[in-house]
């Protein structure tokens, strides 16, 4: 499989993941009907994913230029979006007085991991010239993105069940 076809598959997957987050957000709003840590997390995930998906083609086109700064823009832009997503996650929880749930913490870890992967790959490629992280970078980010969707669904179902059990226990007191 050529690089361009792998690339087009990855871009297509990005769009599917974005649609999945959006659908999950709508479902969460229908079921919960109030602001919660889970809803905040989904909003941040959808916005960050949407920004990355829409910027990817432009950045990719720019990054094909031979200058170092063009390559840097590719890695740094994604890292900046990750930082902004983390900041939004923190600020929304703080402003709306919401407890930081397990999923929010997990998504926070994922954003830090994504930003770290961008840094590692840039340093690996242009400072040490080792290409040590090439394969890892190429596959880890889309793989983590894909894995995150079922993890979020499972955690949400688990949290909903836990909440129902808590309500039942409360009514029997």
């Amino acid at each position: 499989m050529s690089w361009s076809s792998i690339d087009s598959v990855l871009f297509a997957l990005d769009k599917i993941i974005f649609v999945a987050y959006f659908a999950l957000l709508v479902l969460a709003m229908l079921f919960q009907r109030k602001v919660s840590s889970f809803v905040i997390t989904l909003i941040v995930l959808t916005v960050a994913n949407g920004a990355m998906t829409s910027l990817s083609p432009i950045l990719y086109q720019y990054a094909t230029q031979p200058e170092l700064f063009a390559k840097f823009t590719w890695y740094a832009s994604f890292a900046v979006i990750d930082v902004l997503a983390l900041f939004l996650l923190y600020k929304f929880h703080q402003l709306l007085n919401q407890n930081v749930c397990f999923i929010a913490n997990l998504v926070g870890i994922f954003f830090v991991t994504f930003a770290t992967l961008q840094t590692l790959r840039f340093v690996d490629r242009f400072v040490f010239n080792t290409e040590f992280f090439q394969q890892f970078y190429q596959h880890a980010i889309p793989a983590l993105n894909i894995v995150l969707v079922p993890i979020i669904i499972i955690s949400w179902v688990f949290e909903l069940k836990l909440g129902q059990r808590f309500m039942k226990a409360g009514s029997t007191l």
């Binding site: 890292a79 407890n99 830090v112 840094t119 840039f122 242009f126």
Partner: peptide, 28 residues
């Protein structure tokens, strides 16, 4: 130039860790 750009991206990465730490405090 490469080192400066590397330092910039490391700084962005540190910002990510800082934001996550803030989120961690909120979780505590």
């Amino acid at each position: 130039m490469t080192v400066i750009l590397a330092l910039v991206i490391v700084a962005i990465n540190l910002l990510a860790f800082w934001a996550y730490k803030k989120l961690g405090v909120l979780r505590s």
